[in-house]
């Protein structure tokens, strides 16, 4: 049941996790954990025809766990973060300011933006994936956009 889902969405989910946790190896681990968790919960899941939301939520939760452990210095990243200053060199020159502004955002705000602008989720879907209310999604996204606009000085 999960294998078609894996084939279709694995790469995209790894990329999503990468944008949140910052490094590919950790992102792969997180996504693998997510598939495993969903697999284990299959008998209890009500909507087995659409497992993607469960997976997304599991990925987001997994990313948060990783970031929490990193804050507690329990688990360092495998590789340099894609949001590090060094990694800015890998994006096109005209994107580097935006990259720097995104990298300065608090993890939760960047997470909301990833779900909104990379996965193209609706606010309701973001709320489900992040386990927060739609109102909190709106305020988090709004604060993130304001911070970005301020950092970019209206250049974007």
């Amino acid at each position: 049941m999960l294998e078609p889902l894996f084939r279709r969405h694995h790469r995209h989910l790894v990329r999503t996790a990468l944008l949140i946790v910052g490094d590919r190896a950790t992102a792969e681990d997180v996504v693998q954990d997510a598939f495993t968790r969903v697999h284990r919960r299959l008998p209890k899941l009500t909507d087995r025809d659409d497992l993607l939301p469960y997976l997304r939520t599991a990925v987001v939760n997994g990313c948060r766990s990783v970031l929490r452990r990193r804050r507690l210095l329990l688990r360092p990243a495998h590789d340099p973060s894609v949001w590090s200053a060094e990694s800015a060199a890998m994006v096109a020159e005209d994107h580097r300011e935006v990259h720097a502004a995104l990298s300065a955002l608090p993890a939760r705000q960047r997470e909301a933006l990833v779900l909104r602008y990379y996965l193209d989720l609706t606010e309701a879907e973001i709320a489900e994936a992040m386990g927060i209310s739609v109102g909190t999604v709106k305020s988090t996204t709004s604060r993130a956009m304001a911070a970005l606009a301020k950092a970019l000085g209206g250049n974007a």
């Binding site: 790469r11 790894v14 990329r15 999503t16 990468l18 944008l19 490094d23 590919r24 992102a27 894609v82 990694s87 890998m90 994006v91 096109a92 994107h95 990259h99 933006l113 990833v114 602008y117 990379y118």
Partner: peptide
Amino acid sequence: FAEVAEKGV
């Protein structure tokens, strides 16, 4: 996001 994701994976 698209560029970072593509470069990363």
